[in-house]
Every structure is written in structure tokens, then in C-alpha cells.
């Protein structure tokens, strides 16, 4: 039973959205919407598990005075204050203090992390774009054309030819290759989903293969 029930549930819950994709009947679409709602509820129940783990491991860190323990205090303080005002703000979470912290603390911190990408792209590009062979040279040339095509300098240097050339690379070879990968990945995903639904793939359940 311990082995069969999860597989049976996976089959039913996995097949139903496929069924609902083809069957528009209200009874089916209502039940399908219910499934979506259950997913949100299940995820909401899992969140406290994560929070308990996070709080537990950081309290242990503080108790044992492990390396970097003062940061754990900052983390727990941030978590409690943000959660408190989030709950006080109701469904949309708009307590003025929550909004203040979001705009003035979360927002700039996230933007900072995202902008780190500019630095990482520079160092990764420096390392990766080497004309080692023909393929790498083509890649290098395409990268430089697209980069120049994305900035006004490119057109200034080439009398307006760089933007159309860069757009050509993006809309023709790039779009074609993207489609190829999308089709392959989508088929891979579909095949994996069918394996999961039919109970052929069980590794994620922690029960091994058939």
C-alpha cells in the first residue's frame, strides 16, 4: 500500500489536467481548478517546514557560536520583522512599514544582486570567447556583432549596418536554434512526464525503479 498509493495518486493527478485540456465540460474544468488550488494549499503547508528548518538551524548556530553566528541573528531579526508586518498588512501585504522596507531595503538589495551579472558576464565573456577553432571563432564573431548591435556605437562605426545584422542573427539563426532546443526539451519533458504518470520513473519518490 505504501508503494501503490503514491503511484495511484500520481497517475490520477497527472492524467487529470491532460484530460481537462481536451474536455471543456464545466464539471471537469471546475475540478481542474480545484487541483490548482490544492497545489497552492499544499505549497503553503510546506512553507512552514522550510521556515522551521531555517529558524532551527540558525538558532543552533547561535547557541553553538559557530563561525558567522552574528549573521544568524540578523537573519532571524529580518525574518521576524518582515513576516510580522506582512501578516499585519492582510491579503495583499500592504502595511505601510512592510511597503517601506520592501521599497527601501528588499528592492535595492535585489537590484544589487541582479546587477552583479554585469560583472560576471564581463569576466565569463573574457574567459570563454577565445578563437580556439572555427566553431569558437564563429561564436566569437556573432557575440561581438550582437553586442555592437545592441549599442549605438556599433551603428556609428559601421554606418548603421550593425543593428540590422544583429537583428538578423537574433531572428534567423538564433530563433531557429532556440526552436530546435525548445522542441527537444519539450519532448524530453513530455517523455519524463509520461514516465512519472505511468509510474515508470520512481526515483523522485525515493523508491527506486521497478
Amino acid at each position: 500500500m505504501r508503494r501503490t498509493l503514491p503511484l495511484f495518486l500520481t497517475f490520477v493527478v497527472g492524467m487529470f489536467p491532460i484530460f481537462a485540456f481536451f474536455v471543456p465540460h464545466r464539471a471537469v474544468s471546475d475540478l481542474n481548478q480545484q487541483l490548482d488550488t490544492w497545489l497552492v494549499i499544499v505549497a503553503a503547508f510546506a512553507l512552514p517546514l522550510g521556515v522551521v528548518n531555517l529558524v532551527g538551524s540558525n538558532i543552533t548556530k547561535i547557541k553553538r557560536k559557530q563561525k558567522g553566528w552574528p549573521y544568524s541573528i540578523v537573519l532571524l531579526a529580518g525574518l521576524s520583522v518582515m513576516a510580522f508586518y506582512g501578516i499585519m498588512g492582510g491579503e495583499q501585504g500592504f502595511h505601510p512599514k512592510f511597503q517601506y522596507m520592501f521599497v527601501n531595503m528588499v528592492s535595492p538589495l535585489q537590484a544589487t544582486m541582479f546587477s552583479l551579472l554585469a560583472f560576471y558576464v564581463a569576466s565569463a565573456a573574457y574567459r570563454a570567447f577565445r578563437a580556439r577553432n572555427i566553431e569558437a571563432t564563429v561564436l566569437l564573431a556573432a557575440a561581438i556583432i550582437v553586442m555592437l548591435g545592441r549599442i549605438p556605437f556599433g551603428d556609428m562605426l559601421t554606418g548603421g549596418r550593425m543593428t540590422p545584422l544583429s537583428e538578423w542573427i537574433m531572428t534567423k539563426p538564433n530563433a531557429a536554434a532556440q526552436r530546435g532546443i525548445i522542441i527537444g526539451a519539450a519532448l524530453g519533458a513530455a517523455s519524463m512526464q509520461i514516465r512519472v504518470i505511468l509510474g515508470i520513473e520512481r526515483t523522485y519518490l525515493g523508491k527506486g525503479q521497478e
Binding site: A122, A125, Y126, R127, R130, M147, L148, I151, F153
Partner: peptide, 19 residues
């Protein structure tokens, strides 16, 4: 964005020259 792109392109050219 333009200046940073030019810097990256300059580094790529420099890297290839050294290579």
C-alpha cells in the same frame, strides 16, 4: 550599457590577442 559593452569587447579582443 554602451560603455560596458565596449569594455567587454575590448577585453575579448585583448584576451584573443594574448591567446
Amino acid at each position: 550599457q554602451s560603455i560596458v559593452h565596449v569594455i567587454i569587447i575590448a577585453f575579448i579582443i585583448f584576451g584573443n590577442t594574448m591567446y
